[in-house]
Simulated assay, not measured.
Amino acid sequence: MKNKFLTALAVLSCIAFTSCSDDSSDSFDNANGDVAKKYITKITTTTSEQGVEPATLTVNYDAAGKVSSVTDGEETSYFAYESGSLKNISGDGDVLNIPNLLSTPQDAYEVGDVLNYDSKGNPVKVRIYERDWDGNIYEQYTGEITYEDKPNPYFYTLQAAGIIDVLDNLDLNFSLTPQSEELIKAKLLLPVSNPKKVVIKDENGNVKKTIVNDYVYGADNYPVSATATETSEYGTWIYTTTYTYK
């Protein structure tokens, strides 16, 4: 469930990312206009997969409106700030897991490169991998992503966690001192819009998996629920997610 919240913020070599130099907030505003600032407090996901219990992710905030902790009931990440800026994240949660574009909760792929972006700066084609137990890549795929004309519902929550500021301060000039690979992945895959559909294809162009998200939106154009239908050669699974905001 954590990987539905804080994405595969994903792995990436920046070959030609035209919006990398932009401030993330400016890119988000340019793409979405004057939208309400909504902050996630809870996400609950249920699935048709037999034997899988509902999963709930809870986001807590301090008196200043900053994210203080994120927990799935088993693992928790704690956020500490200094002069309003994120200073440290502790605990055992994976906070660089903003909603995974390429997977439902069933499984995940490793993103290798962003191959194309749309005019808003959303990644629309990525190279993805599967690895064996020894870490060797044994399959390569492409993921093609389409989006709804609605804002990324996680953006302001990530901003309240200080993560957007951290990403904006990254220097993506790879000739300089290397930055954290995980942070680079996060910055390059972060979308400004809400993902609608993902089609995963093998190297021969055969479709291996399709994920379609159907949303119910509230008055502020943020989803209050979503149904993800995942279809592959192994069958079809349905995941239902509800969102609570403040």
Rank of each mutant, 00 (worst) to 15 (best):
S103T: 14
D113Q: 09
A161N: 04
E230H: 10
D26H: 04
Y141D: 08
L115Y: 08
P178E: 05
T142D: 08
S27T: 11
G33F: 14
K2L: 07
I211K: 09
A228W: 12
G162D: 00
A108G: 11
T41K: 14
F155Q: 02
R131F: 13
D107L: 01
F155N: 01
P153I: 00
D22H: 10
T44Q: 15
A36Y: 05
G143P: 04
V35W: 03
T41G: 02
T45E: 13
P195N: 06
A36S: 15
G91M: 07
I137H: 04
L6R: 01
V124R: 03
Y61K: 14
N32K: 07
T44P: 07
Y39F: 15
S69F: 07
T236S: 12
L6I: 10
Y117C: 04
D72C: 09
D34W: 01
Y138K: 09
A8N: 04
S103E: 06
G51P: 13
D22L: 14
S225T: 12
K196V: 07
A10Y: 00
N136R: 07
T104Y: 09
G112K: 09
A219C: 00
I211H: 08
V67M: 02
A8K: 03
A55L: 10
Q159A: 01
S225W: 09
E75V: 09
E139H: 09
S24Q: 05
V207I: 15
D134R: 13
S68D: 12
N204S: 14
G112S: 12
D92K: 15
L102K: 01
T18I: 09
Y78P: 05
A160F: 05
T44N: 15
G93M: 05
D107G: 08
F174V: 06
S193P: 01
T71K: 09
K87E: 14
A64I: 00
T242N: 08
V207M: 05
V52W: 11
F174C: 07
Y154M: 10
V192N: 10
T236N: 12
A63C: 03
D171Q: 06
G218Y: 06
I211V: 15
I43N: 06
A64R: 09
D23A: 05
Y156K: 02
S225E: 12
G235W: 11
Y239C: 08
G65E: 08
D149L: 10
F17R: 00
T236W: 14
I200P: 03
